[in-house]
Structures are given as C-alpha cells and as structure tokens.
Design a protein around this nucleic acid. Sequence first.
DNA 1: GTGAAAGCGCTAACAG
DNA 2: CTGTTAGCGCTTTCAC
Lengths: 366, 366
Amino acid sequence: MAEQRTAPPTVYDVAAASGVSIATVSRVLRTPDAVREGTRDRVQAAIRLLGYVPSGNARALAGKRTGVIGLLLPGFDVVPDERPGLVTDGGVRVVDDRRHVTQPFASNLYFDEVLRGAETEAWQRGLALMVAAGRGPSRDVIVNDVAGRVDGLAVLAQTVPDELLEHVARRVPVVVLADDRRSHGFDSVSVDNAAGMRTLAAHVIGRLGIRSIAYVAGPIDSPDDQERSAGFRQALDDHGVEPRSVRTVHGDFGRARARELAVALLADSPPRAIVCSNDQSALGVLDAVLAAGLRVPDDIVVTGFDGIDAGRFSAPRLTTVHQPMGELGRAAVVAIVDRLERREGPPRAVRLPVEVLLRESCPPTL
Amino acid sequence: MAEQRTAPPTVYDVAAASGVSIATVSRVLRTPDAVREGTRDRVQAAIRLLGYVPSGNARALAGKRTGVIGLLLPGFDVVPDERPGLVTDGGVRVVDDRRHVTQPFASNLYFDEVLRGAETEAWQRGLALMVAAGRGPSRDVIVNDVAGRVDGLAVLAQTVPDELLEHVARRVPVVVLADDRRSHGFDSVSVDNAAGMRTLAAHVIGRLGIRSIAYVAGPIDSPDDQERSAGFRQALDDHGVEPRSVRTVHGDFGRARARELAVALLADSPPRAIVCSNDQSALGVLDAVLAAGLRVPDDIVVTGFDGIDAGRFSAPRLTTVHQPMGELGRAAVVAIVDRLERREGPPRAVRLPVEVLLRESCPPTL
DNA sequence: GTGAAAGCGCTAACAG
DNA sequence: CTGTTAGCGCTTTCAC
C-alpha cells in the first residue's frame, strides 16, 4: 500500500487506459448521465484500477471556483498546563491531580463551537473548510494564503487588521463574525448582545422584583461590553429604575479582577443582585460572595453572560445569556454562500438570537 | 469595500501595472532577493494597489504541491439539545435550565482537541489545514475531494473504509490516527493504551495493595479495549495476582450499561477496586457505588480511562489515564511532513505516551 | 537581473 | 454521445 512512488495518475492516464478522450473522463466525473453506460463503466473501471483521484487544484483553476471556504480564528492559545507533583513510572507519567480543578479555557471552547458549526454547514453544502488561526508575525502570509485558496472567507472579530482584511476582500467575499462591522462594508454575523442583557435584566428587575442592583461591566473599549451595557440600561429604563441607583464597576472580563471588585461591592451594603457583563466575571463574583458567607441566590443573585462551560459546573450553577456559537459558524457559511450567489448588493448584517438560561445562581423565581 | 465586482487581478495585471514580466512578479513573491530593489518596490506597489492575492490553486498546480494537509474526522454529531420549559420574552428565549446538567459530548471534545493540535502544528510549519467530517452517504465524494486538494491526509480511526482509504492513499500519503494499523501499510500515530492501563493498575495493586478487584471492560471488538485489557492483565501478572480472582464484565463503553453492571457487581461481596476500560463506564460505576451508599475512595476505589472533561467535574473526581489528544493532532502533522520528505520507506508507527492522573476516586495513597 | 515559453491537470465550449 | 482545443494563474527552466 501507500505506493504512490510515481506521479499520481491524471485524466490523461485514465483516458488512455479506457480508450476515450480526457473530456469524457471529465464528464464521467461531473455529468455521468451525459455518457453512455458502457463507456462510463470502462472509465470508472480505469479510475479504480489506476487509483485516480482528481486534482482539486486543477479543477479549481479551470472551473473558477474552489468549493472551499476559509475560516480565520484568532489563534488557539495552547496553554500547556503545568501540573505539579509528577512521578515517573515505567514510561508513563503519573500525576497527582487532586484538587487542581483546571479552569477550562473558555475562549478556546468558544472557537471550537464556531468551527464545528461552520464545518457542519459547509459540508452539508458540499463545501470544504479550511481553518487557520491567524497568529504571530506570519499572519499576513497566512491570511493571504488562505484567501488565495478559497471562495469566501469568514473572519472572527479582531483576528485580522482592517488593512489586510480590505486587501483580501478584493479577491474573495469576507464575512466578519461576532463584530458588527457593517460600517466597514463587510457582511457580518453577530449575536444580539443588547437584547440578551436586556431580557436577563428584565427578569431580575421585573420578574424577581429586585431593585438593589450592582453591575460589573467589562473593559470600556469592548464592543461586546458596550452592547451589553446598553441592553442593561434599557432594562433599567423599561422598569423605571434610576440608573444612578445601580452601582457600576468596570472589570477586565477576568475572574480574578471581578472577585476583587465584588469584595469591595459587598463591603458596604450588599446589593440584592449582581449582574455581570460576562461569565468569567460572574464566577469571580460568585467566589467573593460565597467567601463572604452570603448565600446565592438566597441573599444575592448573580448573573453572567456567554454561556461558557464553567458556568454549568459551578456551584451554584450560573444563570447566563447563552451565545449560540455553533450557529455563528453555520451562519457564517450561509452568509458567504449567499454573497457568492449575489455578488453585488449592499453588505448584510445577520443578528443571531441569544438565549437566557436561568440556573441556580438566579432562578426563575425566588 | 468588498468591491471585487471584476475578476481578481492576476500576475499579468501586476506585471502590466509595474512594467515587468510575470516571471518577475513571481520572483518578487517567492525569491525577493533575486530581484533588483527598484523593480521589487514597483511590483510590490502594484500588488498593493491592485489588491492582488495569488491564487493558491494555480500555485499548487504549477508547483506540484499544495501546502495543505487534510484532516478527516468521524463526523461531528451535532445533537441539538432539546431543553424543556421555554418562555419567550421579547424575541429572546428564556429557558429554565436548572438541574439539567447537560452531559458534555465526550467524543466531540475529543475531536476538537485533535483538531486544535493539528492546526497548531500545521501553521507552525506554514501548512494549511483542511478539515472534513466524513459522514453520510457522500463520504466517498468528500474524501476524494479532500484527497485531491492536499499534500497529505490524516484520518481518524474508523472514519474511512479501508477500500476508500487505499484508493486515496495512491495519491497522497495517509496517516491513520488512534488505531495501530501498521498492518495495513499506513503510517500511524496512536496512544499507548496498554502501558497506560498497566501503570494505573500497578498503582491500584502495587502501591495501594488492593487485591480484590473487578474489571469493567468495553466491547470485545474494540481495539482500544483490547489493548487496555492486555495492559491490565500485564499488571496482574506483574504483581502475581491470579487473573481468575478478578471479576470481569463487558460493557459497551457507555455510562448507563456500566451502572447496571456495577449494581450486579456490588450485589455479592463488593470488591475493593473497580477498574474500568473508559471514563464513561467509570462514571456509571461511580453512580452505582454511591447510590449503594458506599464511599469512594474509602470503601471502593474507581478508575477510568480517557481523561474526558466530565471526569474532572464528577464527585469525586475521577482517576484516569489521560490521552494526549492535542499531541495526537500534532503528531499526525509531523508524521505527514515526515513522510512527504521521505516518500519511500516502510510505514512508521508513532506511539504517544499517556499520563495517569490520580484524582479523588483513587488517590495516590489511602 | 529579467523575459519568453512550456507546462501543471482539469473544465468547458465547440464541433462533429 | 464523444473528441478537440483553449485556457485557468502560476512556477520554472532556459536564454538573453
């Protein structure tokens, strides 16, 4: 097996072996019905015999389309997890792994889901998917490389600098994910951050009737945070809650910082609810609240945003707004296919709905 | 932006715009030093001006190599999770998600890791990655399609039928993952199942001194299970434990079945240890043991194999043998590159080491 | 240092 | 139904 010493067979080889012209070989592959049965059989036999696999590159070149879609992700940051206390035993490492509850790396899982969604949708439509994580200094090369091989490109927000993106966009349609950049003229698919937060906050304020609220925001320059905060303010407005009555602090979307901020918030008169702009922050808040001896949700309810895995495993489990990452990936492919069929026309922005998941940290009712 | 109304610019356009021949344009791209600085600058300016991105397909066709590696996974089974109790509220679904601890879909996460590893390694080497999940009846098409566009193909075990694999292997080098198929003549990368289980069992028998053991195996026809079982028997032998003194039952690698089997095992005289051939089974055993009012690890220690996420979150956390999935992906790429440089030669089999993770269900010491 | 020309393997008219 | 013939966009000798 795995011979393949000599050059792979081509249409010419198949044609010669079956006594037809290369055109007929091509037909057998692409429009089998246009070939007489006997001929077709002979050609197919030759294909099998020779182990012929058509060159996708030649096809793409001749056919003016590749049938491949590119997906650019912002780099998998593979953090090698250093674990202590190793013992070696017969070539197999034995590790004392008690109590080291490794934190699942949220952002990575997030990409995985997008990727999976895109893959699913692409293959369903007979398209192949080319994945690349644009990282490091060679990013330009990579991006150009991918752009040169695909029919369309889906790019996760902040993965590729504008200039580069605009360059490659002159060759292939580009759709930007999770970042409403219509302004830049690209198609986009994003998630309805504002509506999600607004609905969640409405639950806290309207349904649970809580008025004593603190809000842990993210970095001010984060577009995600801005949208979520806007949704939050909307909810306040909807329910006639005075914005100034809400203590707002800005974190960095990280767990540790949120924990510190929460400690401070609890120092004075603890609020009845702490709404957070993302899950990591909410987990940090949870840490602080529980450490302070307060009960969740009995004394304080806590909410997050994102729907990361860690929130499903926390104690109590985290109420949050779940972003449909898999859908994001699928929608990206759909958007590209769409654009491919509709070469012209103004950029389109697709908004994906989110889902509020009420879990123990802020239940349906108190 | 996103103009791209007209056909994308080619080397000819760039050549014309900068007053050189297409050969020089090509040189500027591939061997910049072979071009006089002034010329180079003019060409690069034209490239930027026109928004030129080289066609990867034309390159591949002319250059006899694509710079792309294919990864074939056994289909992401996207199980849409039906959740009960939906309420709609302003376009955003609100879901009561209490207590529905959705089981993370182990096999999917598993692929994600492989994929990530492969991606990392590929881009590090300047190669692109094309991903495909071979599923459904169109699998042949997909596999051929991918095979026709790549320099090498990594295939996860049992994703592609032998015949198909042998066909495409005549065109590109193939490496099989997680399935020691040297016999079939392919290069392979797999994990040392036997050594892992042997080491883990040695811990149970040798270090903890347990002799009263039950073994929950997997399906008899699973190659993984066979290797693990062999490792287990080795350990028994190493420590002079009579194999017949070990009660062995065969499950299906599933949690539910394992639970049933464990209930039966506990009915008579409960063993001091239950060693399982995979994590899912171990979790099922854990369920049964705890339900029977026995304590883990105090009354019974339980071990698994795989290192799935759910085992990190169980109570108690599961002692297991962790398979380095990310490494599998990386090793796959390495193996392909290797083969590409060494066209001939006998198939190679790479064995990746595993890691025993001692957690609370079977701690370092009792 | 640069240009001319011959393919790479396939598809898609266009004839027969 | 089948064969002929141009290219698709780029790399790569081989001359100059």
